[in-house]
C-alpha cells in the first residue's frame, strides 16, 4: 500500500518515526513524501527494505545512515545526502550538494545531476555513480568502495586516498595528493560496466579512466613531507 506523507502538514518527526516503526511498515512498504521544500533529515535512519519517494528538493542529510531502503529524491538534495549509508539505494534525480555519500559504508548512491564538493569524502565501501560532474576534493580520504563519474571532476580528486577506486569519464581538474591514474584492466571494465548497469546509465566503460591510491602516504616518509 502506498502511503503519502505531507511534510508540511504531518511533520518530519512523525515521518521518521513512522519509517522506523516496524508495525507501521508491515502494511506500508511504499511511501511518498510531498511538500519536502528542502527540509532537513528526511527519511534518515531507515532500517527496512521499503521504498520512499520524495517529491521535491530535500535539505541536509536526506536518507542519512540508510539501511536497506530505496529512497528516491525527485529534486536536489542538500549537504550529506545518504551520509554514512550502510546498504540500500539512494537516487537523486537532481543535483546533490557537498559531501554526498560522506563516510558511507555500503549501498548504492546515484546522482543523476551534478554533485558538488567533497562527494564521497571518507567513503568506506559505498558505490557512488554520478551522471554529471563532481566538485573539488571529492573522494578525499576514500577508504573503500567505488565512485563513477560520467562528467568531470573538480580540483584535488582523491586526495589522501586509501583503497577506494574512482572511475572518471571526463576531465579531472587536478589530482589530490597520492592519487594517480591507473590502468583499466579487464576486471575494472567489468566492475564499471556492472556499476553503470546498476545505476541504469548507458556509457561505454572503455571511455573512463581509473584513479586510485599511489600508496605513498601509507607510512610517513620524510620525502613526502610536503604532501602532509
Amino acid at each position: 500500500m502506498m502511503k503519502t506523507h505531507d511534510l508540511a502538514v504531518d511533520g518530519l518527526r512523525e515521518l521518521n518515526q513512522a519509517l522506523h516503526d516496524a508495525d507501521t511498515l508491515k502494511d506500508a512498504r511504499e511511501w511518498r513524501v510531498v511538500n519536502s521544500d528542502g527540509a532537513h533529515n528526511i527519511a534518515c535512519g531507515i532500517n527496512d527494505d521499503i521504498s520512499v519517494d520524495i517529491d521535491g528538493h530535500a535539505g541536509y542529510y536526506c536518507a542519512g545512515m540508510n539501511q536497506k531502503a530505496s529512497v528516491t529524491i525527485h529534486g536536489n538534495t542538500g549537504v550529506g545526502v545518504a551520509e554514512n549509508m550502510m546498504s540500500g539505494c539512494v537516487r537523486v534525480k537532481g543535483d546533490a550538494s557537498q559531501s554526498a555519500g560522506a563516510t558511507a559504508h555500503g549501498g548504492l548512491l546515484i546522482i543523476e545531476g551534478n554533485a558538488s564538493a567533497r562527494c564521497g569524502i571518507s567513503m568506506k565501501g559505498v558505490d557512488i555513480v554520478v551522471k554529471g560532474n563532481i566538485g573539488a576534493m571529492s573522494a578525499f580520504m576514500g577508504q573503500a568502495g567505488r565512485m563513477v563519474v560520467c562528467g568531470d571532476a573538480g580540483e584535488g580528486l582523491g586526495d589522501s586516498l586509501y583503497e577506494a577506486r574512482l572511475y572518471v569519464k571526463g576531465t579531472v581538474a587536478s589530482l589530490g595528493a597520492d592519487c594517480i591514474a591507473k590502468d583499466m584492466r579487464a576486471e575494472h571494465l567489468e566492475e564499471l560496466a556492472e556499476l553503470l548497469a546498476s545505476a541504469g546509465i548507458d556509457e561505454d566503460p572503455a571511455s573512463f579512466t581509473r584513479y586510485g591510491s599511489a600508496r605513498q602516504l601509507y607510512h610517513f616518509k620524510v620525502d613526502n613531507a610536503s604532501a602532509y
Binding site: D37, G38, H40, G56, G59, G94, G135, A136
Partner: peptide, 22 residues
C-alpha cells in the same frame, strides 16, 4: 544558505537551482 529559504518563492519548482562553485 539553504534551499528551504527559497521554497516559498513563486515558480520555484521550475526554477534553475544550483550551488555556486568555490
Amino acid at each position: 544558505s539553504e534551499y528551504r529559504a527559497l521554497a516559498s518563492l513563486p515558480g520555484i519548482k521550475d526554477a534553475r537551482v544550483w550551488e555556486p562553485e568555490p
